[in-house]
Design a protein around this nucleic acid. Structure first.
Length: 571
RNA sequence: CGGGAUGUGGCGCAGUCAGGCAGCGCACCUGCUUUGGGAGCAGGGGGUCGGCGGUUCAAAUCCGCCCAUCCCGACCA
């Protein structure tokens, strides 16, 4: 393509609302524009990258025997009612009504639709199956942010596996695991597989592929020693040992006028590690006490995963007072027998603790957790802290900000059972297939690459997904020899199947160099009178800035080699 | 949903406190000069100042309501 006739609206300044680097550069480089919060228009350059990312994913899916489908984005409510998710999902799903008054949903994921197709599987001989699509998803995100990283409308590769038994599911899961590693390697994304919560979808094994980046939204605990890596929603760690303070035969009350917080109580001589934090939650409608060490954060996701609870909301002040006769800040579990009590494992064996007395302005000290509190369930619900010890090897855990580029997990039979999918096994018995669900966000992967591949001059795309692989920068377009050389090279490269861009704009060289760098094209050939006199062209490598003079008749060959090698990187 | 901030030409911003002709840089158009790293000079086009209502002789500016966008949190297959 000729730059002079393309729509590549580059900007010298990024819009003020763009904060994430990927957001700034994708807008400045003319790859995309925002239509409204969470919705972006892909411009020609952006769409080329998007399609190339999708193509890498497609190739790796096909390589594990997955079959590509294309499903509707708009679904009947009845299908989602069949799985129970019409009611359980809530506001995140876009819903609408057609002219007949029928309820519809915009698909935010496609378990239901694919599962409904699987009703046509009838024999164990039909299994396993891996089905996928690259389709638009719609999610009414409460807060879209960071450009393409969190949007309300986006392309996702989602695949689903159907197997007869757990061993089969394990195989399908592992195939995806490896395909994802290959995919991200080819995209030059350093994506670490980490243990994750499976969230509201249910299911057992759950692995997220995480790219370290400040622009991310997830925190991952990583052990440099043994390689343990887990989303903090799930991560475990060994807290630094704490010596119990001297105990007493029974808890002793003491006045604490005005003390309402962990920090205030700490100032009164009771360090957070020696306090019991008492949280009151409404868990699926039931008032419940959750106890943690004073300095440990509560992770609702861990609680949900441990208990299977769905609806976990902090209790209101008035219901707390009705149940415990005190207000937040003076709450405790000592002597409480009519509420379910959950205690974090870090409280096991602790004594000499301080906690609220369920009487405003009074606390108890000398509390022995196991002696004085009727704990119903010991669970691990605390958020781990940076620098704590790894539970597997004792090494130091580091908590890193990450972008979730992919997620794979085992669904089990939730959907196949709900929709009544059965196949006959070798004995002629009906069996319900077990499923897996696997996703990669295409736009998010593109943004993650942008986030990790740039310098002060702009983007630096890996060859596989670069919008164009080579740009021919003609320094003087009215210099006939230059144009003749450029046109010839342009034709040769196109004949060789290279995605080549001819910058034939009548502009200053500096502007054209700056644009080529901003847009991030991996290889640039500078064509001007100066080089042509010597029969040389200048080749510049975007990633390292390296420049070499190449004899004019060897340029095409060298470029083809570089492009071919670049496309194959990571394979 | 809670907290914070912002809305003035395509992009970046000043002007708002203290009401009085809507400005600047970039980009765009024309001409001349220039031309291997975001050119110079001259001329020019483009804005319901987010919206609605109010106060006032007069509102980008003051008041009220609403909308949009961004950031933190909550939330998030």
């Amino acid at each position: 393509m000729r730059w002079s006739s393309l729509f590549i609206p580059t900007l010298r300044d990024a819009p003020a609302e763009a904060e994430a680097v990927s957001h700034q550069l994708l807008v400045r480089g003319g790859f995309m524009r925002q239509l409204q919060s969470g919705h972006y228009s892909m411009l020609p350059l952006g769409w080329r990258v998007h399609q190339k990312v999708a193509e890498v994913i497609r190739q790796e899916m096909d390589a594990i025997g997955a079959q590509e489908f294309h499903l509707p984005a708009m679904h009947p409510a009845s299908l989602w009612q069949a799985s129970g998710r019409w009611d359980s999902i809530g506001e995140e799903m876009f819903r609408l009504t057609d002219r007949k008054g029928v309820d519809l949903a915009l698909g935010m994921t496609h378990e239901e639709v694919f599962t409904s197709l699987s009703l046509e599987l009838s024999s164990y001989r039909d299994l396993p199956q891996i089905w996928y699509q690259i389709q638009w998803k719609f999610r009414d995100e409460p807060r879209p942010k960071s450009g393409l990283l969190r949007v309300r409308e986006f392309a996702m590769k989602d695949s689903y596996s159907f197997d007869l038994d757990d061993a089969g599911l394990d195989r399908s899961f592992d195939l995806h695991h490896d395909a994802y590693l290959r995919t991200f390697r080819r995209l030059d994304l350093d994506a670490q597989p980490v243990e994750a919560s499976s969230g509201a979808m249910g299911g057992s094994a759950s692995i997220e592929f995480m790219v370290e980046s400040d622009a991310g939204e997830d925190d991952v605990a990583i052990c440099e020693g043994c390689g343990y890596a887990a989303n903090v929603e799930r991560a475990t760690a060994v807290p630094a040992p704490v010596e119990n303070r001297p105990g007493s035969d029974s808890p002793e009350a003491f006045p604490t006028p005005g003390v309402r917080t962990i920090a205030a109580l700490a100032e009164a001589g009771h360090p957070p590690a020696h306090q019991i934090k008492t949280l009151v939650y409404r868990v699926d409608g039931v008032l419940t006490l959750i106890l943690l060490r004073g300095d440990h954060p509560f992770l609702e996701q861990k609680f949900a995963d441990a208990t299977g609870a769905v609806d976990i909301v902090p209790a209101e002040a008035d219901e707390i007072r009705a149940a415990l006769d005190a207000s937040p800040g003076s709450l405790g579990a000592v002597g409480v027998s009519d509420l379910e009590i959950y205690a974090d494992e870090a409280l096991r064996g602790r004594s000499g603790m301080t906690t609220g007395a369920n009487e405003d302005d009074v606390h108890l000290t000398g509390v022995d957790v196991e002696r004085d509190i009727a704990v119903d369930h010991w669970i691990n619900v605390r958020g781990i802290l940076d620098g704590e010890a790894c539970a597997s090897c004792g090494g130091t855990l580091r908590v890193a900000r990450c972008i979730e580029a992919g997620h794979i997990f085992k669904l089990g039979r939730k959907y196949s059972e709900a929709l009544g999918v059965t196949v006959l096994d070798a004995e002629g018995e009906n069996r319900v297939p077990t499923m897996g669900s696997y996703g990669i966000g295409v736009g998010r992967a593109m943004a993650a690459v942008a986030e990790t591949h740039h310098d002060e001059n702009g983007l630096v795309w890996p060859m596989v997904i670069a919008p164009y692989e080579v740009v021919l920068t003609v320094v003087k377009v009215d210099h006939e020899e230059s144009m003749a050389v450029a046109e010839k090279l342009y034709d040769d490269l196109r004949d060789a199947g290279v995605d080549v861009l001819l910058d034939d704009r009548d502009g200053r060289a500096g502007v054209k160099f700056a644009d080529a760098e901003l847009v991030g094209i991996p290889l640039r050939v500078t064509i001007g009178p100066r080089g042509i006199e010597n029969g040389k062209l200048e080749l510049t490598i975007r990633s390292n800035g390296e420049q070499v003079d190449v004899p004019a008749d060897e340029v095409a060959g060298q470029l083809v080699e570089l492009v071919t090698a670049g496309r194959a990187a990571g394979r």
